[in-house]
Write a protein that binds this DNA or RNA. Structure first.
Lengths: 205, 205
DNA sequence: GAAGTGACTATATCACGATTTAGTCACTTG
DNA sequence: CAAGTGACTAAATCGTGATATAGTCACTTC
């Protein structure tokens, strides 16, 4: 159904074009209202008043459109997370809030905007590039927080930074990946608090 | 398809009966060879030379048979894990080996015995009692190791024991639950090592 | 050459009748 | 009463032909 994105491929057609934007906003609306699967490319064409064939002048496939919308969603979550991190002064609290924001923001997408969550789920099962990029950026953010904490002498410095980052990332993953999230919650809802405490204990000097 | 087991229910028919055992071993074989879904209750009946109706004198439902087989599988994994824990002298190493055994033993079920894994997956999606029991027993084992480590002065004692246990359990969960496992691996295969190191750091005094 | 499309194909999805399957029950047999 | 079953039903599953959909291409228009 969904192919893993190997080569993101050069954007088809003019990268900056009014019609491209129209497609994107029509897709966002339709995906949000009816879901990714239920929306046909013809629907999108009809919505913007062009033929279906024309859409393929701008996007390689329906999935390519989905990936873009999905990437936007994930970027929104990422923005929330970054805001949460920025809202704290010190690394330990940054980490706590990061964890909390991950769960809350993902859960919001999951529960409030079920239809959009569907895309993210498709993306995750199909290993779309957008998800990999997102996970990578979160990993980098995490590393940044860790570095900050080490510089401020809040965190231990013996363990190699990238090993620490990777391990903590593994702890976070079940709450980041939309597919895993639905299983991860339900277990207990103060998981993020307990886990960030554990992680912080592991970072203490 | 699968109903969450609310009431495990009293065993139907005589609890200790030759035919019950026959059913169980026939089911084990069939599920292993053809999978849970593909095996019909009539198949089992044919295999033991009785009518289908007779099977229902011993089991409430097909799922009840599945749960039993699944419980056996999980108990096997649990045995492996306990063996791994027992093979080490001190709590920290016990914890390391526990983590490793969880992943390895679950993975073995996953890859070697794909058909049986299917049951476990059905069980996990359907929230069968067997899985909940299994998870509970692992949690208890974990708590036991932690208690041991605290007594031997290997682990910190400030954090409440059950909070620590729960948090660590949350870290382990993605590798315990067969459904989560398939997503959790593929990320990196030295996840167990990295995670147990992190956990141990969090336990250090 | 840029903007745009109708008509086409191969594949995926759907609707729906035919078949299986889980599960029950009244009944037989010794 | 214990051991056992054929015949039944409701619900799930399957097979299949009909429909819908993703994606392409030759073509037109300006």
């Amino acid at each position: 159904m969904n192919k893993p994105t190997i080569n993101p491929g050069p954007v088809r057609g003019p990268a900056d074009h009014e019609v491209r934007d129209q497609i994107v906003s029509a897709a966002t609306e339709h995906f949000r209202l009816y879901g990714y699967e239920k929306t046909t490319v013809s629907d999108l064409a009809k919505a913007i008043g062009f033929s279906k064939a024309y859409i393929y002048k701008f996007f390689e496939s329906k999935q390519a459109i989905g990936e873009l919308i999905c990437a936007n969603c994930l970027r929104q979550i990422e923005t929330d997370i970054r805001a949460a991190v920025d809202s704290a002064d010190h690394a330990p609290e940054k980490l706590r809030r990061m964890f909390k924001a991950i769960v809350e923001s993902s859960m919001q997408l999951f529960s409030e905007d079920r239809r959009l969550y569907d895309i993210a789920a498709s993306a995750a099962t199909g290993q779309w590039q957008a998800v990999r990029d997102y996970e990578l950026r979160i990993q980098q953010l995490l590393q940044e927080v860790l570095r900050l904490g080490r510089e401020a002498d809040d965190f231990e410095r013996k363990t190699p930074l990238d090993e620490t980052a990777n391990a903590i990332y593994l702890v976070m993953r079940p709450y980041l990946n939309p597919l895993l999230l639905q299983y991860s919650l339900g277990a207990t809802d103060d998981a993020p608090a307990q886990l960030s405490s554990l992680v912080l204990r592991s970072l203490s000097r």
